[in-house]
Nucleic acid binder design. Structure first.
Lengths: 250, 250
DNA sequence: CGTGCCAGGTGCCTT
DNA sequence: AAGGCACTTGGCACG
């Protein structure tokens, strides 16, 4: 059930929003307004035509005419109030921790609607990092010939190492897996794991590619890089490859 | 100028969207639909009531009833098409590089509106990390009385130290600045810089606050914590301090 | 609550 | 175009 108002007065819009807030409906409001934000950072946005979205869980989004990201926002769990003051509609949102405030001051509301979105569908994501681990754990030869993996996702004092194992020469090995290009961070992560151990471990960083600086740091530390062949791995997934999904749905 | 349709037929909605696309208007559409995505990853979302937003620059956002993040999206620059097929409205978005596809299949459209958002306002962001460095470099007394800073953003073998300097007692000093609460990793970072030097350096970690564990580690290492007074610093910026902004606008 | 770490991260700036 | 890095990153899992 949709409720909507076209070119409402600010009083009408304010009442409308307050009604929607009480029943935790979603509200979409298009109008002319300015935005102030204070919190971890702060920002000011002068008056302009935008979209403001209030979700039932207390999140707020302000979208301008371009781009993926909202220009201002408030995450879920905020306390939201709306009132008319001095001929302007003021929408105020307060986040408790960290302390953050967002205020939208409306000169005009062009259109506003609210609804309770009935949406029970499950969101299914394609192969994640976890999926890659499973495949690699069953096929350590993709990482290195003769490698035996002894544990996965092993918690250390300083983080969780993806794999532990023993290489062809009998050396203990830590393996860090990245699904995408490995950067300096990944090398540091691996280094931290190995430094945390009293005994000697070889380090293997396994990723589809690696940045130049990361490789340089890796070599300086004496660790190894192993190129991960994504196509070969995806052949082993139950999930259908890109091309097939494309053919089927698109 | 707003155009809107309440409970349109799928044909009406499709025509409406195509008209809006031609003039690169923003479109907000609330309805019952499913979403498929294939690209860097892939995802499937069964039918449910949601909001779909198309922006003039070719970005697409699908929002469910909860949370800050869109469940599916397409960044700006995509090619968008809309048609009715087998009694469903299909909205298709293609990204060129990387190759990514998003498809929304509508069973029903509850409300749809479009508008060209006139929005020329400048978005002004509060102090960034860079801003803090500049201010602190010019006002080292905020860090410590009698401190002289000799260089900023100096590259070491192990990273980039924010400031180097000499304290009142003539000791060489490394300063690491954090804009937010300093955690254990900030201490480790500082420690790494100092360990990398052949000569002795004092370590100062400068942040608005510090976690208990980080402070404990810092003290164990013999380094100093300096509370960064954000209000005092922001006085030196053209940007007004938190409390004042709060008083004035909230 | 802090710590660690992934994300279809996104956006910005540099080579 | 690719790499590096900050972000009001958000989000989740775990101690």
């Amino acid at each position: 059930m949709i409720q909507s108002l076209l070119y409402p007065s600010l009083e009408e819009a304010s009442d409308f929003i307050n009604s929607a807030l009480r029943v935790k409906n979603l509200v979409v409001c298009c109008g002319l307004f300015s935005v102030e934000y204070v919190g971890r950072s702060s920002s000011t946005l002068g008056a302009g035509e935008r979209i403001l979205i209030i979700k039932g869980d207390g999140s707020v989004l302000v979208h301008r005419s371009k781009g993926y990201e909202p220009v201002n926002w408030q995450p879920s769990g905020c306390i939201i109030r709306c009132r008319v003051e001095d001929g302007k509609m003021i929408l105020f949102s307060e986040r408790r921790r960290p302390k953050e405030f967002l205020k939208a001051v409306f000169d005009k509301v062009y259109i506003i609607f609210s609804t309770s979105l009935v949406d029970e569908a499950k969101f299914l994501m394609g192969p994640s990092e976890e999926t890659f681990y499973s495949i690699l754990f069953q096929h350590p030869e993709f990482i290195e010939k003769g490698l035996r993996l002894t544990s996965r996702q092993k918690p250390l004092s300083t983080g969780v190492v993806d794999f532990t194992g023993i290489d062809e020469g009998g050396n203990y090995v830590f393996v860090e897996v990245k699904r995408r290009t490995a950067g300096v961070d990944a090398v540091k992560q691996l280094d931290r794991y190995i430094k945390s151990q009293p005994t000697r471990f070889r380090g293997i960083l396994c990723a589809p590619s690696i940045t130049k600086q990361a490789l340089s740091l890796l070599e300086k530390k004496g660790y190894s890089f192993r190129k991960l062949d994504l196509n070969r791995i995806s052949k082993l997934l139950t999930i259908e490859p890109f091309e097939e999904t494309l053919d089927k749905h698109f």
